[in-house]
């Protein structure tokens, strides 16, 4: 059975709420009924068939083609199944996702993986601000699962993050890990200002020396036994993080944010002789 494929006919002027098109809601629903589902588009409701050409029948394997940056809430609360987005995705991608896999080939907007609970989200391009964060007013962001970003990410990555793993191959913007409650954020590229601002617990793992605020204190160099286990868990991903060569267990440990609980840590890979970190150019930061 081929994947249920939604091919966008043309880009809309207004944003589209894609939250009804997730695997668990479409299970055992006929193609005709799927075509008749109404999607919120600005202040209008329009049927799926007006926006998309529909093909395939496997509702547990959904593909969205010609996607663009105004398709919001893709894979919202996804429970099992897989959603592949060819193109860009709008805001709130995989918001509250419970399980399953989501893959986006292009860039994604604000609040991707916000309050995500489990599963795997892979973003081939860049991600906007508040990746894995809590919605405004809420106290807990991402609570589990893994987010893998091959490009760069915006500001406030992991704001209020509670648990889970965020793997960023590129660079991260300002306030990375801000108000983080726990969890792990790994950034291979550069990080912006106010790293770990008001961070309570959790780990930020870095390959490059960041500019740290005064409220993170140097705890010295260490060999940490959990790092090999952590890196081993990355090997299953199609990512730079899977390479054995990027793994390390010698780190400089910074504890903070001392203006908060002070139980968080920023672990920075200790440079080894002859190493060239130029692959992660700060110029690519957006």
């Amino acid at each position: 059975m081929s994947a249920l494929t939604f091919t966008l006919k043309q880009e809309t002027a207004q944003r589209v709420d894609m939250s009804p098109l997730v695997c668990q809601l479409l299970k055992d629903v006929s193609i005709d009924d799927i075509a008749a589902i109404e999607l919120q588009n600005g202040k209008r409701k329009i049927p799926v068939s007006e926006l998309f050409d529909i093909s395939g029948a496997d509702t547990q394997n959904i593909v969205i083609k010609n996607s663009f940056a105004k398709l919001d809430f893709i894979a919202k609360d996804l429970q099992d199944g897989s959603i592949t987005v060819e193109g860009e995705a709008g805001a709130y991608l995989a918001m509250g996702m419970k399980s399953g896999t989501v893959t986006v080939n292009g860039d994604v907007g604000l609040y991707a993986a916000c309050e995500m609970k489990n599963g795997l989200l892979t973003i081939q391009g860049n991600a906007g601000d508040f990746l894995g964060a809590a919605l405004p007013g809420n106290k807990q962001g991402m609570k589990g699962g893994t987010v893998l970003v091959k490009g760069n990410v915006g500001q406030r990555v992991g704001d209020h993050m509670r648990r889970g793993t965020m793997l960023i191959e590129g660079c991260a913007g300002d306030y990375c890990g801000s108000r983080m409650i726990a969890g792990t954020i790994a950034v291979m590229g550069a990080t912006g200002r106010f790293l770990g601002y008001a961070m309570q617990r959790g780990t930020i793992l870095l390959w490059r020396q960041p500019k740290l605020s005064a409220t993170f204190n140097d705890c010295g160099t260490h060999t940490l036994a959990f790092l090999p286990i952590l890196f081993k868990s990355f090997r299953k991903f199609d990512s730079k993080f899977a390479a054995q060569a990027i793994a390390f267990n010698r780190v400089q440990r910074y504890g903070g944010d001392m203006a908060e609980k002070g139980r968080a840590e920023i672990l920075v890979k200790l440079p080894s002789a002859g190493q060239n970190d130029s692959a992660f150019s700060a110029e690519s930061f957006h």
Binding site: G144, L224, A225, F226, L230, S233
Partner: peptide
């Protein structure tokens, strides 16, 4: 510090020789 890796929970307890 707790770390949940691949569904397993680990504890990192600071001790005098490291962790």
């Amino acid at each position: 510090i707790a770390k949940k890796i691949d569904g397993k929970r680990y504890w990192r307890v600071p001790v005098m020789d490291g962790e």
